[in-house]
Design a protein around this nucleic acid. Structure first.
Lengths: 135, 135
DNA sequence: CCGACTACTTAGACAACATCTAAGCTTTGA
DNA sequence: TCAAAGCTTAGATGTTGTCTAAGTAGTCGG
């Protein structure tokens, strides 16, 4: 009987190998928007076999392709990954780089027909600012 | 008598060396949101002396620091530069990667006080879609 | 002018992030 | 049991960006 994660992968057309399962499980469990290297560090000891960085990159690309996770690009030069499939926006703390999800309904919807030249598929909003630790 | 570009740099506290002037001139002249390497290719022959890539990177970072240009991060792994200082948003053609500026007033303003935990300094909206070449 | 100080630039080494390659391993199905 | 297809591995390679050491140009006090 396949686990929930295996079913998730199968339903997206991704073969659930052990490597892909542990990587996907980690992404679903965290809300920290990890980089590829952070994913590697987190799961490298969760498998009884060696894990190659190439597999992590291959898997992350496959998951993005299949629509299981999304890439987040808040700072240049490093890609982060987000398994929150609910539509949402992002807030980035300019001091720490921490990324926090903002629920879709907390932000007014934007019109998609801003200009007849553009056929808008979607949009991405990133807020920059400081996190008030007092709250 | 200093040129307009030299005055721009001076007013932002950046010493207008020949390298910095030609790089800034190129950025002001284009709306193509070039990468650092595209900037290098564009200006390397505009100087009577050799130009190092390090100087391009140093200059771009200095211009960003000084507020003369802005970084644009629409795709992971490469930083683009934008000398359009008017507030604006971006549209990215998913087929070509082309980036087009969208005037600030064409998009509804978003509230900055979405959540008491966040002190929002600003935000960035990137629209993804297809460009209708027919218009 | 002169010397020293500061800032800038250069070429190439280096570092970080990501992809590619060749070989081996699993799985699948005939 | 065999072949084909797909996945993973280790390490080489590619790409983007930064760092280092040396040299150069501009500035300022004398």
């Amino acid at each position: 009987m396949p686990s929930e994660v295996e079913e998730l992968l199968l339903s997206h057309g991704v073969k659930p190998t052990p490597q892909r399962v542990v990587i996907t499980e980690f992404l679903l469990r965290t809300d920290s928007h990890p980089t590829a290297d952070q994913v590697f560090e987190a799961v490298v000891n969760a498998l009884p076999v060696p894990l190659s960085r190439a597999t992590v990159y291959n898997t992350l690309n496959a998951l993005v392709q299949a629509g299981v996770v999304k890439e987040v690009s808040t700072e240049p030069g490093r890609t982060r990954y987000d398994a929150n499939l609910d539509r949402h926006h992002h807030f980035v703390d300019v001091n720490t780089g921490e990324i926090i999800d903002i629920p879709w309904q907390e932000v007014p919807q934007l019109p998609k027909n801003l200009n007849p030249r553009f056929k808008v598929h979607g949009y991405q909003i990133i807020f920059f600012g400081e996190l008030d630790k007092g709250h």
